[in-house]
Design a protein around this nucleic acid. Structure first.
Lengths: 187, 187
DNA sequence: TCAATAACTAAACGATTGTTTAGTTATTTT
DNA sequence: AAAATAACTAAACAATCGTTTAGTTATTGA
């Protein structure tokens, strides 16, 4: 019964997500978000409630993007080899403007404190559990694996992903390649 | 020719270091530093110049503490086994108030942006290079290693340390133990 | 066509950021 | 003892933080 929004919420959230990814949560200010999202503070608040709200939606947006990388892993018939490909896809995911910026989720996990917004922390845990579950499913496709080994390996690979994400903020690409190769040596 | 300082700079910097370790750089405010260091803002500025200056000295203080963990690695006769012990010592280093807070240096590397204080970034790079050098020296004690392999392995272990530091902020201790064991499987 | 309604602009909000400065107190040396 | 000096306290600084609010503009349904 009144005016329509002059912007698409999904579109502006993707822009916010990219900004958060580049700068982290604390460093990103509402002023920067206004400029990047191309809409007024009022519009941001009416759509997402708070800076925390924008970040929460940004994480969901990031997860959606990351899902595309998980598709080959879901479809792989060769468990460990598929996992290795996922690791390469994962660092390839952060290219151009985001190369050296790591993973938005692990960055958030590293930046957020104990008293940080609990909804965001829950989202981070959910994400980690989901990826780990996909790893375990892929590992099940290997023959002669006992369940206990799969759990341990899933832990190892998920933590290695954390390491890869963190390291990609500091190291060169050829070092990361070397790291991935080592991760899969005898695993 | 006048009044003496009522505080010891090394002592108050260690307190600052602990605060930064717990909270990260951005989240730690001058007000919090005043309270934790037990001295006035004026004293902080007259001793360290700026918040950046306090952080820089905090990093140096952290490095000094970490050096104690490197001593066994320097003295080890069994390269890889010594490295493994270092990894265990490294997670044991973050106990009590700092358990789950990772490593101050890698936290800073993850938090600091491109435009962050360049002196701090240089200190971080120096630290990483030093640790990596110690890893390489330890690996040289293994017999029949070709130099190229040592370089690759040094990369792998230093990135694994990043992963371990990052992961320790999220995962349980037994998962970390499992991770360390996997890092050293066939390496 | 016109009242209703919601999205818009832009200014202001109080709180807090890192930093500086004025004024006071304590210690030192001559 | 008294002038000199530096460490102290505490208040204020401008700038920016995330958030809100008042006022305007555009679109809607009756």
């Amino acid at each position: 019964m009144a005016r329509k929004k002059n912007y698409n919420e999904d579109e502006v959230i993707e822009k916010a997500m990219r900004l958060f990814w580049r700068n982290g949560y604390e460093t990103t200010s509402m002023q920067m978000l206004e400029k990047e999202m191309g809409i007024n503070k009022f519009s941001i608040y009416s759509s997402f409630g708070s800076k925390n709200g924008v970040f929460l939606e940004s994480i969901k947006c990031y997860k959606k993007k990351l899902n595309d990388i998980l598709i080959p892993l879901k479809n792989t018939t060769n468990g460990v080899e598929g996992l290795k490909q996922y690791f390469y896809d994962f660092i390839a995911f952060s290219k151009d403007e985001h190369f050296g910026k790591g993973c938005l989720i692990t960055n958030a996990a590293n930046e957020l404190q104990e008293d940080a917004d609990s909804e965001i922390k829950a989202e981070l845990r959910k994400f980690t559990a989901e990826i780990r579950n996909q790893f375990a499913l892929a590992l099940q496709k290997e023959k002669n694996q006992d369940p206990n080994t799969i759990e341990k390996k899933a832990d190892y690979f998920i933590i290695s992903m954390f390491g890869l994400a963190s390291a990609s903020r500091v190291f060169q690409k050829n070092q990361l390649d070397n790291y991935i190769e080592n991760i899969f040596t005898n695993n």
